[in-house]
Write a protein that binds this DNA or RNA. Structure first.
Lengths: 210, 210
DNA sequence: TATTTTTTGTGAATTAAATAACATTAATTA
DNA sequence: TAATTAATGTTATTTAATTCACAAAAAATA
């Protein structure tokens, strides 16, 4: 089993780039061009593909349609992925309405919050915001395995523990905390302040050395 | 100059964890505990510190206060960092109001959008949303070097080019596009859909092998 | 004061990932 | 049909990052 996160992220990027190429009317593509679109080397593209048994045609490149199909299948994009979101604050609410998820076949089935003021039954076509109490029941009933965690730092671990009890196996965590997770749950952290801080560091560093 | 992005990200995490330890009343810390809080090994912590000439006391660990000061100085956190945001849509607006940035000494001075409906003069204590036309003038006048880019995919490259013309040197890019950037500008990409897709892949992969 | 314990700091070893290089193959051209 | 060209696929190499392991030093204890 491939366990290189960066490699899988590249597969997603290849897939996205291929969809754009297809939109432009292309039906074949060379590793060189795909590499360019994604910002890697062509050897990297071919190496990644070979890891997943994806092959093209010597001197003929790759068929875009077949390639998209293959990548979608590897990435589990043949069916809609249902996820839940916990913490309907500023960021959480924006993610609920963020249409890039829907475009990618990811559906936020429900949001949960502990604050009664945030609860909304959810008109049709809009995501309901339910009381946190109901999260375990909802998650189990709908057999959901993935959660987005956008609660404040101090609530992050305890909320995470609730998700574990509900059977969640993957969490996209926005709280700037290292969650203590059981070995059968995967946590991907997104820390926007740290990302910015990092950018600031490197910009400052490069401005200094000029 | 250190050019390992992960290393700098760890420094930010150490700093955040140390602030929490300090809040709890600790004044000294061992690499072992800090490692635990951040989810790395103790050797990694000491190695990172040694890269930046940070030293502790044999058998005595590190003084938390001094360590925070040192890390803040390395990360350029001794003064408020002013940034701009371009694209006041769903996600952009949430980031404008996201209080983790302010907590970290990062100030969004202004947001810009091409849509006249989004423009707001900005009451005091709130961030003004200005017409994109005014971005170059504003950025240059305020000597801003960092921008957050939250425009739709199709507008990303051309908006980025405007930022380059204005003298921006670092961009946190949320558009799922590989921006063509000059060598003196740093781009950090955050792609939330890809992050989720990645999580889905690994969760599916691990559920299959059980 | 001498001994033991515990932690740092770092050079060496290991591991993992990316890059380079090239043999192979298929299409194109002569 | 033979020669040439241009792409893939994979093996070898290089590079980078992490982990290991232990000497050195300071604190604690006897």
């Amino acid at each position: 089993m491939i366990s290189n996160k960066n490699c899988i992220i590249r597969l997603s990027k290849y897939k996205n780039a291929l969809v754009r190429f297809k939109t432009l009317g292309f039906i074949k593509i060379f590793s060189e061009y795909l590499a360019d679109a994604v910002g890697v080397t062509s050897a990297q593209v071919r190496k990644d593909f070979s890891l997943f048994g994806i092959s093209g045609n010597k001197r003929g490149g790759y068929q875009i349609d077949a390639l998209i199909t293959k990548l979608n299948s590897i990435l589990g994009k043949n069916e809609i992925q249902n996820v839940v979101l916990v913490g309907a604050g500023q960021l959480g609410s924006a993610l609920v309405r963020y249409n890039s998820f829907e475009k990618e076949g990811i559906k936020i089935s429900a949001a949960f919050d502990i604050d009664p003021a945030k609860i909304t039954a959810g008109a049709k076509n809009s995501v309901p915001v339910l009381p946190l109490d109901e999260a375990i029941k909802f998650i189990q009933k709908n057999n959901i395995k993935i959660a987005i965690l956008t609660v404040p730092d101090v609530a992050a671990q305890q909320t995470f523990d609730i998700l574990m009890a509900a059977g969640i196996k993957g969490v996209l965590n926005f709280a700037p905390i290292e969650l203590k997770a059981p070995s059968d749950c995967i946590v991907n952290n997104v820390n926007l302040a740290v990302e910015l801080e990092n950018l600031i560091y490197f910009v400052n560093a490069s401005l200094k050395t000029d």
